[in-house]
């Protein structure tokens, strides 16, 4: 059964992460891309060229913000200076929504600039839920939080990640950004069942989907965002599409970035999987 988005956030279609190497192409050629996701931190403290480019992009395309520094899982106090800038940026570019990750980036006043995993237990859940509520009150909009790809699990975790995420989203009343490549990477790394993971997601809260490539090192996978989306991840995507009927979909490509048309072509492959998923859904009714 298709589950609509709780807040009525639109399916913006198939978008691409805005990257500097593509600035000139995008401004000159004005490609017919459905939407762009921008990395919030790249624009919070600059009033130079990146901001001018972003203003032009936001004039022509729908934009959503995606951050990496909220550190919602950290036990350090929330950084309201950061949130203030984030709120201002979201208003400036009229962002459709604001996202970040279920993770922490540092404690004791430090920042490692990495998306670090949290123990999945009741204490963490209570802590994160409280912070999400505070952030949402401050930003006056729901947060859209992404399942990060992780490389360790903790001895004091007591629940599966999908359960943690589902309860977090329900109790904090926040949205979800489901990264299907991260589902693949984390499940590979932790010997989890990806289909059970996907079964546990509350799809009425899923607002956006991420696609990306990764590096398979045999013993484990690394979320490198430097390659095409693998077939298995497309299967997950099709399944999520079947359940949601369509959510804003975004391809992340952050290393060894090819020319813009190639990146765009990769995300456009989603059309085929969307069509096939809906055919299956109709046939099942």
């Amino acid at each position: 059964m298709i589950v609509p988005n709780k807040w009525g956030f639109p399916d913006l279609g198939l978008g691409v992460g805005l990257r500097t190497v593509h600035y000139d192409y995008i401004l000159k050629k004005r490609p017919r891309v459905d939407w762009f996701e921008i990395l919030s931190e790249n624009y919070l403290d600059t009033d130079g060229r990146p901001m001018r480019i972003l203003e032009q992009v936001a004039e022509r395309y729908p934009v959503a913000l995606h951050g990496v520094s909220l550190s919602i899982g950290s036990t350090d106090p929330l950084d309201f200076e950061y949130l203030k800038k984030l709120k201002r940026l979201a208003e400036k570019v009229q962002a459709h929504w604001l996202g970040d990750h279920v993770c922490w980036t540092g404690v004791a006043g430090r920042n490692g600039h990495d998306l670090l995993p949290v123990p999945l237990n009741e204490e963490t859940l209570r802590h994160i839920v409280k912070r999400i509520r505070t952030v949402q009150d401050y930003l006056e909009r729901p947060l859209i939080l992404e399942n990060a790809s992780t490389y360790v699990t903790f001895a004091n975790s007591t629940m599966p990640e999908q359960e943690f995420i589902a309860r977090m989203a329900e109790e904090a009343d926040c949205g979800l950004l489901l990264d299907v490549n991260n589902v693949y990477v984390s499940c590979r790394n932790h010997d989890w069942d990806p289909w059970a993971y996907l079964d546990g997601i509350p799809y009425h809260r899923v607002t956006q989907i991420h696609l990306a490539g990764h590096t398979d090192n045999g013993t484990h996978c690394i979320d490198t965002h430097n390659a095409r989306v693998v077939d298995e991840v497309w299967k997950y995507y099709a399944e999520v599409h079947r359940r949601t009927g369509g959510r804003a979909t975004l391809l992340e490509w952050d290393a060894d970035i090819p020319a813009f048309p190639e990146v765009h072509a990769e995300v456009l492959k989603a059309k085929k999987f969307r069509r096939e998923a809906m055919k299956r859904e109709r046939a099942a009714r």
Binding site: T20, V21, L39, E41, V68, I222, T224, E252, A255
Partner: peptide, 12 residues
Amino acid sequence: GRKIRGAAPRRG
């Protein structure tokens, strides 16, 4: 150009 900061942290 401008580097992408923060995206997909590099791992080793």
